[in-house]
């Protein structure tokens, strides 16, 4: 019998606990299908805003050796155009799609959530944590009162699960995680990128066109792991771990820290979409070798 690593999270049945992280690929329906076909248990779209956004000028991404620094500026065609892409992704059936939303007001978040719910997506992820946009993003994601308003408003308008993605750029991530839980969030995604920058010594200029960006990749894994560990201790809703996961060992670490699922992004630059298959295989081998029957048995095990 094949080893079963399916997961049940906040009403979603995942064939395995790996997800494509927001912002990676995901601009088109076919790109989401490509990642699904590579084995991901769910795919999260690029963050979608109400109006189309061109994003920032290049350079939008810088390889800093231990990860990537990016400031894309949330380029997307706007929610109405994007639902057509989401429908293309969904048309194949099985696919589990979570739409990442980026709004300026609670009502704007809710309006977008309704539109994508009607289109038939499985869940939404609220991007309350983008470190490189001027309005919204991280600024709203560090304020528990605003988080409360946004999550409550979205929950009032839709029936599909709502995940809240948090920023690590805050002194106490537990507070905002609790605020999201209290407001009715069905799960926490942690973490978004870490606000950072890089400067070119020859020209003396910041490398990113936007000057600041978000750091992702292996460099932030220990930060992400610490955040997941802390959040898992303070909330009862599922936590989805995200940040620098590059191999199955990283994934297992996140489960042990308390994550019920994991998201993969930057590592696709190193190992391409095959990374999903590789990590799934590694998770299965680990569970088998350690004598566990499923992932649930190891979620949060490092806390005991």
């Amino acid at each position: 019998m094949p080893f079963d690593i399916s997961m049940h999270i906040a009403g979603l049945n995942l064939r395995n606990p790996t997800m494509l992280a927001a912002g990676i690929l995901g601009m088109t329906g076919l790109s989401l299908r490509k990642v699904w076909n590579a084995g991901a248990g769910a795919v999260v779209t690029k963050s979608i805003s109400f109006q189309p956004r061109l994003g920032y000028k290049n350079p939008t991404i810088v390889d800093v050796g231990y990860g990537f620094l990016n400031a894309m500026g949330i380029p997307n065609p706007g929610v109405y155009e994007y639902v057509e892409e989401a429908k293309i992704a969904i048309s194949e059936g099985e696919l589990v799609i979570i739409v990442s939303l980026y709004g300026n007001t609670p009502l704007e978040f809710a309006k977008m959530a309704r539109i994508v719910e009607t289109a038939g997506v499985n869940a939404v992820e609220l991007n309350l944590s983008c470190p490189h946009v001027k309005l919204g993003g991280m600024e709203i994601g560090t304020n528990p009162t605003i988080i409360d308003k946004i999550v409550k408003t979205v929950k009032k308008h839709i029936n599909i699960p709502v995940f809240t993605k948090l920023t690590p750029n805050i002194s106490d991530i537990k507070t905002i995680a609790r605020a999201a839980e209290d407001a009715g969030s069905d799960g926490i995604v942690a973490i978004n990128t870490v606000k950072a920058m890089a400067i070119d010594v020859e020209s003396g200029r910041p490398l990113l066109a936007n000057k600041y960006g978000g750091l992702s990749g292996p460099a932030i894994k220990p930060i992400a792991l610490r955040c997941v560990y802390e959040i898992a201790q303070s909330v009862n809703i599922p936590v989805i771990g995200c940040g620098g996961i590059t191999d199955w060992k990283d994934a297992i670490e996140f489960f042990l820290a308390g994550a019920s699922a994991i998201q993969i992004g930057t590592a696709i630059a190193y190992k391409d979409v095959n990374i999903f298959g590789e990590i799934i295989k590694g998770i299965k081998c680990y569970l088998k070798r350690k004598g566990y029957n499923n992932i649930k048995e190891i979620v949060g095990l490092s806390h005991t």
């Binding site: 990676i24 690929l25 790109s31 690029k46 939008t60």
Partner: peptide, 20 residues
Amino acid sequence: IRCSVGLCGSCFIGEYRVCK
């Protein structure tokens, strides 16, 4: 083309990333 390493998804034609 933005990232050029197959991450950002700006360059898709069908299922192919033109950058990669």
